[in-house]
Simulated assay, not measured.
Amino acid sequence: MLAAFVSTPAPKDPLSVLEVAERPEPEVPDGWTTVQVKAVSLNHHDLFSLRGVGLPQERMPMILGTDAAGLDEDGNEVVVHGVVASPGWTGDETLDPKRTLFSELHQGTMAERVAVPRRNVLPKPAGLSFAEAACLPTAWLTAYRMLFVKSGLRPGQTVLVQGASGGVATALIVLGRAAGLRVWVTGRSEEKRAAALALGAEQAFETGARLPERVDGVMETVGEATWSHSVKSLKPGGVLVTSGATTGFNPGAELNRVFFTQLSVIGSTMGTREELESLLQMCSTTGVRPVIDVELPLKQAREGFERMLEGRTAGKIVFTP
């Protein structure tokens, strides 16, 4: 079957080790099933995998991809939840110290077929296309958990989203607006800021710009490049929710500001199966849809990876096997 995969890491030149070629059919353990993949979305996690971050050489070759939508063995339209709990784990799977995502321990979803635990298969709402549904289990679920599970923000409050054009950031804009939040964003280019405004952001600013007023919350996925600005942008008692660090993991601490103004800094990772169910329901009832930048056949995966590596994104990049 056709798949996008990595056989050896390349920390400094990740695209040099991206392969799109034939791979063996998936092995199906007890309690698992197979899904015929109709669409899979690209995430920064996939670039990290090419670099060998969280994916040691001994687990390669590894098919990339953490989320997908497709058909189950009975032909039903389904969405694949990307967090795989360890055997016997109960409760919030994101707190399982041995949890993994597809493409870390188990072969990923960027293929014509993928093996998944049966509990990781959810019905796809009829109103969502396969491409739209494939955007939800990683980036959009991450945004949903940040806003509605972790932040404690209420409708009418102001939230700043750092980095306006990525998959999580665009999800935060659309979901925040739908929930009645005032959404402000930062973006590196006028084009990215204009796109964020078109999605529903109230105001858009250059990266690092002084804001008209401090905000109630900041959603942070950029990391080192924006961390100091995020902390300085918060009102006393404000909340910063972080779920990633695409520009680096060594931010300025700003600890004096954190404790003097009694800020909350909260980590958030992915989301649970139940939260994905809620996100699917929210999309169905509100008409909210993921923002897709480009949809490409899987054989052209390199083009999508190049767009993400160069920061030329305005929403999600989707591949169709």
Rank of each mutant, 00 (worst) to 15 (best):
R302G: 07
K316P: 08
S165H: 05
A10F: 00
V168M: 05
A198D: 14
F249S: 11
F148A: 12
L128D: 09
A209I: 12
R154C: 08
N256I: 11
E104Q: 15
S49P: 01
M60I: 13
P251T: 06
P290A: 07
T66R: 14
G88E: 06
E112T: 08
R118H: 10
M146S: 09
L122G: 02
C283S: 09
G248C: 13
D67P: 05
T158P: 05
L128A: 10
T109S: 06
T320C: 15
L141E: 05
N256D: 07
V114D: 04
G167D: 04
A201K: 01
E220P: 01
P9M: 07
R177V: 03
E191I: 07
G180Y: 15
E58F: 10
L42Q: 11
V78M: 06
R99K: 15
L263G: 00
P11W: 07
E295H: 10
A209Y: 13
H44C: 09
F260Y: 15
Q57P: 02
T33L: 12
Q157K: 07
D293N: 10
P137Y: 08
V6A: 04
V116R: 05
F102T: 00
I173M: 05
S103G: 00
W140H: 09
D46N: 14
F205H: 06
S103V: 04
A115I: 04
K38C: 02
V35A: 09
G152T: 04
E132Y: 12
G267F: 03
T242Q: 03
